[in-house]
Simulated scan of single mutants.
Amino acid sequence: MNLLLLLYAEFFKIGLFAVGGGLATIPFLEELIDMYHWITQEDLINIIAVAESTPGAVGVNAATFMGYSTAGVLGGIIAVLGLITPSIIIIVIVAKIFHKFKSNSYVKAAFYGIRPVAAGIIGAAGISVAMIAFGIEDLITGASTAYLATVFNILLGLLFFFAIEKFKKHAIVYIAVGAILGILIV
C-alpha cells in the first residue's frame, strides 16, 4: 500500500475512534508505533509534552510529526487530513440531524454511555504517559538506574502537584520551570 494512503487510512481510523479529544489519541498512536515504528515511544512523550504546552491538539500535532517523520511535508499534511476527516464528516451529519433527535431518549442514553468510555481512554493514556515520564516502565524492565530515576521523577511530580495546588500560578509557569529543570538535570 502506498505510504501516503497508509498514513491517511491509519489516522482516519484514529480520528474516527478517538472519542474524547487529543489525549484519547495516545493509545492509538502507541499502537501505530508498535506496528510501523514511524517514531519512538520517547518521541511520542516529547510530542505530548510539546502539544500540551503549545496551541493545537495532541492528535493533530502527533499526526503532523509522524506524517512528517515518515513522508516529509506531504506526509504531515496527509496524516492531519486523515485525522480530521472523520470529525468533519460527523459534524456535518450531526448538524443536519441533531435538532430532530436531541430530545430522543436513545440519543441521550448514547451520549451518556460515551462519557465513561472517553474518560477511560483518557485515563489509560494518562497512566501510560505517567509510567514513561516517571520512569516506572524502566523500573519494570529492570534498567540499572531506574530505581533512583523513578523515585526522583515521582518526587518531582509530587512537588509540582503541591506547588500547583498551593501557589495557583498560570500553567505556563510550571511548564517553563519543568523545561528548565529538564535541561539542567538531563
Results as ranks from 00 to 15, higher is better:
Gly126Asn: 08
Gly157Phe: 01
Leu155Tyr: 03
Gly126Phe: 05
Phe98Cys: 00
Gly75Trp: 02
Leu83Asn: 02
Gly72Thr: 14
Gly142Val: 10
Phe134Asp: 00
Thr150His: 05
Ser105Tyr: 09
Val73Gln: 08
Ser105Met: 14
Gly182Ile: 14
Ala179Thr: 11
Lys96Trp: 01
Ile89Trp: 10
Gly75Leu: 05
Val129Gln: 03
Val129Tyr: 01
His170Cys: 03
Ile154Arg: 12
Asn153Val: 00
Ala95Gly: 11
Ile136Tyr: 00
Asn153Gln: 10
Ala176Glu: 08
Asn153Gly: 14
Lys169His: 03
Thr70His: 05
Ala171Lys: 13
Tyr147Gly: 03
Thr145Glu: 12
Phe111Trp: 02
Leu74Lys: 10
Thr141Ser: 02
Val80Trp: 06
Leu83Gln: 12
Lys168Ala: 05
Ile175Phe: 14
Tyr106Ala: 12
Ile88Asp: 10
Ile132Arg: 15
Ala71Asn: 06
Thr150Lys: 07
Thr145Gln: 11
Gly82Gln: 07
Leu74Gln: 11
Leu159Ser: 13
Gly142Trp: 03
Ile127Pro: 03
Tyr106His: 13
Asp138Arg: 04
Ile84Ala: 04
Tyr147Lys: 11
Ala109Ile: 13
Phe167Asp: 09
Asn153Ala: 15
Ala133Phe: 11
Thr141Asp: 03
Ile89Val: 15
Ile78Trp: 04
Gly82Ser: 11
